[in-house]
């Protein structure tokens, strides 16, 4: 079983890296890009856990380590 975790900065938290990426895209000739928010993507290999336990565990992992909930949001997707 695998879990996919997306970690992004909370809405309203300034994302200087996203802003720099947007500027670089403008310089490359993509003026249509109105904004970029960057984040992290993690793929966890969970062995043979059952889906409900896996999802609960991954959420705990996000709360305790993977995300800093002061500034970041996370989304968990468990794939069977």
């Amino acid at each position: 079983m695998k879990a996919r975790v997306h970690i992004t900065l909370k809405q309203g938290v300034l994302d200087p890296q996203g802003k720099a990426i947007a500027n670089a895209l403008h310089a490359l000739g993509f003026p249509a890009v109105a904004g970029v928010r960057q984040g992290k993507y993690l793929e966890l290999d969970l062995g043979n856990a059952d889906k409900a336990t896996a999802e609960k565990d991954v959420r705990t992992m996000c709360e305790r380590l993977l995300a800093n909930t002061v500034i970041e949001d996370y989304a968990v997707e468990v794939l069977t």
Binding site: V13, L14, P16, Q17, A20, N68, V70, I71
Partner: peptide, 8 residues
């Protein structure tokens, strides 16, 4: 929390 510097 301490984030990336605003000026990068």
């Amino acid at each position: 929390a301490l984030m990336r510097n605003a000026g990068l």
